[in-house]
């Protein structure tokens, strides 16, 4: 088994910026007046992840379990290098693709094809690669002629199908998913599931955060239970879900 992701003593503090400490005027004033005001403008920090030590190996399908705010999403953002650790080291061997927010960066004024191209570029594909993929993506969305219409004319269901198809065009070694289960008609949900499974098959490592134990059980083989930013349990998926249910 080869290590794909390895975290050593990783902690992450997230600074919380509010009213006064995002103002340069107040910052400068607090330097000038010193003392009490300076104390007030100190940035408050939330310890989002504490002392995480974990290795994720090839073939692991990892489920993240935990309450809201336990650190699941933050952990995913750390793996995807959106956040950088406050202390500790992270080693990632392989290219990462993420699926956190399906509708990200969709432009209502542009048509379906243009949206596919823009999103593909943002995911790091080259333009000719994307153009080659378009027929397959359009086929998946079942939008037909609508693909050439501005997407502001789409219904919610159509938007979801397009967004989902666009979000799943890249296949990479490491796949990070966060609450990807959306609404849609039943036949599309089956297709969506099949497509996700395809992506998972193609990846070396998959990490999934979800509140649906049923989905986690179906898709994962390893479970991590988070509490207050720490991993308190790490085992196979069935034991982890049992632990999670019994302790909460």
């Amino acid at each position: 088994m080869s290590k794909i992701i390895s975290l050593k003593n990783v902690s992450l503090d997230i600074p919380i910026y509010d009213g006064s400490n995002i103002s340069i005027k107040k910052q400068l004033l607090s330097y000038a007046t010193g003392g009490r005001l300076a104390m007030e403008s100190k940035v408050c920090r939330v310890q989002a992840l504490k002392n995480i030590n974990i290795d994720i190996n090839k073939g692991d399908r990892v489920a993240l379990l935990g309450h809201n705010g336990a650190g699941k999403s933050t952990f995913l953002k750390l793996l995807s290098t959106i956040y950088h650790p406050t202390s500790g080291t992270i080693n990632i061997n392989g290219e990462v693709s993420t699926l956190f927010e399906v509708g990200l960066g969709m432009d209502p004024e542009m048509n379906g094809i243009d949206n596919i191209i823009t999103r593909g570029l943002l995911y790091g594909l080259k333009k000719n690669q994307i153009v080659a993929m378009i027929p397959e993506v359009v086929d998946f969305t079942e939008l037909g002629e609508f693909i050439n219409f501005p997407i502001r004319t789409y219904s919610n269901g159509m938007l979801l199908r397009l967004a989902f198809a666009i979000s799943t065009i890249v296949k990479r070694d490491i796949l990070l998913l966060d609450e990807i289960i959306g609404a849609g008609d039943a036949s599309f949900m089956n297709k969506a599931e099949a497509r996700i499974n395809e992506l998972v098959e193609a990846s070396d490592v998959m990490v999934l955060a979800s509140h649906s134990n049923e989905i986690l059980k179906k898709m994962c083989n390893r479970g991590l239970v988070f509490r207050h930013g720490e991993i308190i349990f790490d085992s196979n998926i069935d034991e982890s879900i049992d632990f999670y249910i019994n302790h909460y």
Binding site: K77, I82, F100, L104, L122, Y123
Partner: peptide
Amino acid sequence: AHYIKQMPI
């Protein structure tokens, strides 16, 4: 911000 917070970019 929406890109920066939601995808590795």
